[in-house]
């Protein structure tokens, strides 16, 4: 594991005597194959510590094992090996404690699909132990906070994907738990709604809550996370603040080239870039030191290769580059 300073928390808000919000030790979990198929190893010896009061992210491509890990944190799935503690309680030994410590937002909430928004949130609040009157008053505040007050009578099925996701978020936030475990809360949201969710999470954090957030969106990871664990194929390949992770590859930039037709193979610059380019269709993506990138781009735009070049961008490193630099092999992290 190439974990980088996994204990480097920026600022645990709670006192030094407080237990970690989440402690994961050597968690391994396979999914049993159907009808004799080989089991798939989804989590492979994962160890992580989430400190109280931080917004902690799990970043990785689809299939990296993020959802499997959070479902074990919330007690919906039992690890094959390893142990998980939440706010000082052993969840592996007694998963029934998890719902009294945390709120969970799954990638989808099929159980709520046909309920009107207001009732879905209210019912979830009541099932978290609120009285009916409390659940109703907090429901109203939450729906306004997330900007979906006007659709409270409509069933979730009848809403746009973005509004439905906001209703899911509202259901996760009602009944204020000290730990929020959210699996891709902003997927499908437009930028305005996405910022509304980030602001709502920030208010919970300011009030002392800890947030564990699954994302495969690089922008989200860089904008809202205090620390991020990068997962790839069931393992943690890095864990630190987004800034420090990016500093690991800060002397490099990403050069993206989009070709109009086949690039001239006899051009020495093209030939050189081709050696390290990750090709997807007409797009080449090359990570290289700043100075080399500038020179290569200069030669390309001054020479005959410009004829077949449709577009190019030169970008400072993002967490996606960190993921790739650490050996990540999938390429479906979202940039937007």
């Amino acid at each position: 594991m190439t974990a980088v300073g996994p204990e480097a928390a920026p600022r645990p808000l709670a006192g030094p005597t407080a237990s970690p919000a989440v402690e994961i030790e050597g968690v391994t979990r396979s999914h049993r194959g159907r009808r004799g198929a080989e089991p798939v190893l989804a989590n492979d010896g994962i160890s992580l510590t989430v400190h109280p009061g931080e917004v902690f992210g799990l970043l990785g491509p689809n299939g990296a094992g993020k959802t499997t890990l959070v479902r074990q944190i919330v007690g919906a799935l039992h690890p094959d090996a390893g142990r998980i503690r939440v706010l000082g309680h052993d969840i592996t030994a007694d998963p029934r404690r998890a719902p009294r410590l945390l709120a969970y937002l799954g990638q989808d909430e099929p159980a709520l699909r046909e309920l009107p928004v207001g009732l879905a949130v209210e019912t979830t609040g009541r099932l978290r132990g609120l009285s009916r009157a409390e659940a109703r008053s907090r429901r109203d505040v939450l729906l306004d906070e997330l900007g979906i007050g006007e659709v409270h009578r409509r069933p979730l099925l009848a809403l746009s994907g973005g509004q439905r996701r906001l209703a899911h978020v509202a259901a996760a936030l009602i009944g204020e738990r000290p730990l929020l475990v959210l699996d891709e809360p902003t997927t499908g949201l437009d930028p305005v709604a996405r910022r509304a969710v980030w602001a709502a999470l920030d208010r919970r954090r300011a009030a002392g809550a800890t947030v564990v957030l699954v994302t495969h969106n690089v922008l989200e990871a860089e904008t809202v996370l205090d620390r991020v664990a990068v997962l790839d194929r069931g393992r943690v390949i890095a864990c630190d603040t987004p800034g420090r992770l990016k500093a690991m590859v800060s002397d490099e930039v990403r050069l993206d080239l989009v070709w109009r037709g086949a690039p001239a193979a006899d051009d020495p610059t093209v030939a050189l870039l081709a050696q390290s380019a990750v090709v997807s269709g007409r797009r080449w993506s090359i990570r290289l030191p700043r100075e080399q990138a500038r020179e290569a781009l200069g030669r390309l735009t001054a020479g005959p290769a410009l004829e077949s070049l449709d577009d190019f961008t030169l970008a400072t490193p993002s967490l996606e580059d960190v993921y790739l630099a650490l050996g990540g092999r999938d390429r479906d992290l979202e940039r937007g």
């Binding site: 706010l87 000082g88 309680h89 404690r97 719902p99 410590l101 019912t123 009541r126 132990g129």
Partner: peptide, 21 residues
């Protein structure tokens, strides 16, 4: 230091909420 567990709804309260939903 462990965080105290939040109160859980009793059977009648949870039943009523599930039923109403």
């Amino acid at each position: 230091m462990t965080t105290p567990l939040a109160l859980a709804p009793g059977l009648p309260g949870a039943f009523a909420a599930v039923y109403a939903g």
